[in-house]
Every structure is written in C-alpha cells, then in structure tokens.
C-alpha cells in the first residue's frame, strides 16, 4: 500500500472510531437505553475499526515488527504519544464493553476512554502541526481531525443502531450543525492557507484545483442538506436515510484526508 494511503486510512479510521465511541457512550449512559446486544456489537465494531487502523498503520513502517520501538520517545515525539494513547483508548473501549455495568462504572470508564481518544486525536494533530509543512502548521489540522471524529463517528453509531435496533436515533440537529461546521472549515482552511507562506499558498492552489476537493464539498453539502431537511420536517429518517448520510460523510472525510496529505506542500 502506498505510504500516504496507510496514514490516510489510519487517521481516518482511528478518529471515526473515537468519535463513534464517544457518541455511543453518551447515548448509552446519558440519553436512552440501548440493548446490551446492540451496545456490545457496536463497541466490537468500533474496536474492529480501531484494530484495522492499527494494523494498517503498522504496515506503513519499514520494519513493522520493530514497531514497539516507536514507544521510545514519549518525552518529545507526538507520534510516540499517539502510539501510546490510541491503544489505551482501545483498551478502555474493551474494558467499557465488558466491565461497565453500572452507571458509575460506565461514567468512569467511558470518560477515561473519551479522554484517551481526545488525547489521541490531539497527538495525531500535533504530529502534523509542524513548520515544515505550512499548510498543516495551524489550527485547521486539529479542527479537521476532530471533525472526522465528530461527523462520521456518530453517524456510524446511528447507522449501527438503525441496523441493530431497527430504529433511528434522531441526530438531525447535531448532524446539521457539524456538517455545517465541516463545510465552514473548508472555507476557513483555504483562506488560512492563502494568507500563509508560499508553500501554504501552493497547498491552497492544489486543494482547490483538485476535483476531489469539490466532491468533498458536494458530499458535505448534501449531508448538510439531508440532515437539515429531516430536521425541518422533524423526522428521524429511515435506515436508508442514515445509510446515505453515512456514505456521504465517509466519502467527504476520506477524500478530505487524502487531500490533506496530497496537498501538504513541504517547505
């Protein structure tokens, strides 16, 4: 697999998994009762996605079986920190899945997991917030990575619940707002890059010249419109609506991540 593609897959899947867990945890603990079967299947799905992310990421190394050595620079390297925190996140997802029985247990384990997830995303963002790539060296990287958690993550949960419980949890307000923010971030990113160093300006050019960028905008806009439509209609939507939404946002975010790497012009 191409080097950059492994990073695209890892960052996208890990962030979606973290977002999905956070969503499931909030619904499960604070909002409404979900059957244990659905919860466990959803959590295992999240773990499976996380595991795929890890496996793919390990194979982007020249020496996958020496991956353990990546833990050796916690004091300085955000990459080491990411590599420490993401497995911790996964470990707590596992604990949550099998040991969180009471609300208190759920709260303690759930919050810990969410914090590790958030720290993972923060670490991943910091890896790329570096002066050598001016397009990345600003808050848009952090914003984009968190949005990948916040947009496809919950819709994944929504889809899982729709499939498992044959009911649609109404996320339309949330999805509309986050999709709007994701749309907005594109505009913000382009304008930040255009006012940056020459390499960032070049990145902006690469970004807006790419058809993938416009597909991303279109899919985000469609997701925004779809969620907004059901919001106005005050309907939760059907399984097929959620499936469509999910397809739209994963295409958008996945393309976005490809663009992130491909338009990151080095100094």
């Amino acid at each position: 697999m191409e080097h950059a593609m492994t990073l695209v897959i890892f960052t996208f899947l890990s962030q979606m998994a973290i977002g999905a867990f956070a969503c499931l945890f909030f619904i499960d603990t604070y909002k409404e009762k979900i059957s244990e079967r659905s919860t466990v299947i959803s959590l295992i799905t999240i773990l499976a996605i996380s595991a795929v992310a890890v496996v793919v990421s390990v194979f982007h190394l020249g020496h996958p079986f020496a991956a353990y050595r990546a833990l050796l620079n916690f004091g300085a390297s955000w990459l080491t920190r990411e590599i420490v925190f993401f497995p911790l996140f996964m470990f707590f997802v596992l604990l949550y899945t099998f040991f969180a029985k009471t609300k208190a247990q759920k709260q303690i384990l759930g919050w810990t997991t969410v914090v590790f997830g958030a720290v993972t995303i923060f670490s991943t963002a910091m890896i790329y917030t570096i002066p050598s790539v001016p397009a990345w060296n600003n808050g848009t990287t952090l914003a984009a990575f968190f949005l990948t958690a916040l947009l496809p993550g919950p819709i994944l949960v929504q889809l899982l619940l729709a499939l498992l419980e044959k009911r649609t949890v109404n996320f339309n307000l949330y999805t509309t707002v986050v999709a709007f923010l994701a749309l907005l971030l594109n505009g913000v990113t382009v304008s930040v890059l255009k006012s940056g160093l020459p390499a960032a300006v070049e990145s902006a050019g690469l970004l807006t010249a790419s058809p993938l960028f416009w597909i991303k905008i279109a899919t985000l806009a469609a997701a925004f419109a779809l969620a907004g439509y059901f919001l106005l209609k005050k309907k939760a939507g059907t399984v097929s609506t959620v499936t469509t939404l999910f397809a739209l946002v994963i295409v958008a975010e996945f393309l976005g991540r490809i663009l992130f790497y491909s338009s990151g012009v080095h100094l």
């Binding site: 080097h3 982007h60 190394l61 020249g62 020496h63 020496a66 991956a67 050595r69 990546a70 050796l72 390297s77 990459l79 890896i127 790329y128 570096i130 002066p131 050598s132 790539v133 080095h266 100094l267």
Partner: peptide
C-alpha cells in the same frame, strides 16, 4: 533503532532524511 516510519522526513524543513528502499530505514 530506526523503524522506517518516515516521520522525520516530513518534519524536517529541508526534507533531509530519505527512505532507503532496501534497508527500509531512513
């Protein structure tokens, strides 16, 4: 010690470290 993750190449403002396709290290 290198495991060939190539993060150094990305981080170096000068793009100095290079990936050796045979050794699979920088």
């Amino acid at each position: 010690r290198c495991i060939g993750c190539r993060m150094c190449a990305t981080a170096c403002p000068y793009g100095v470290p290079q990936f050796d396709p045979v050794k699979k290290k920088m």
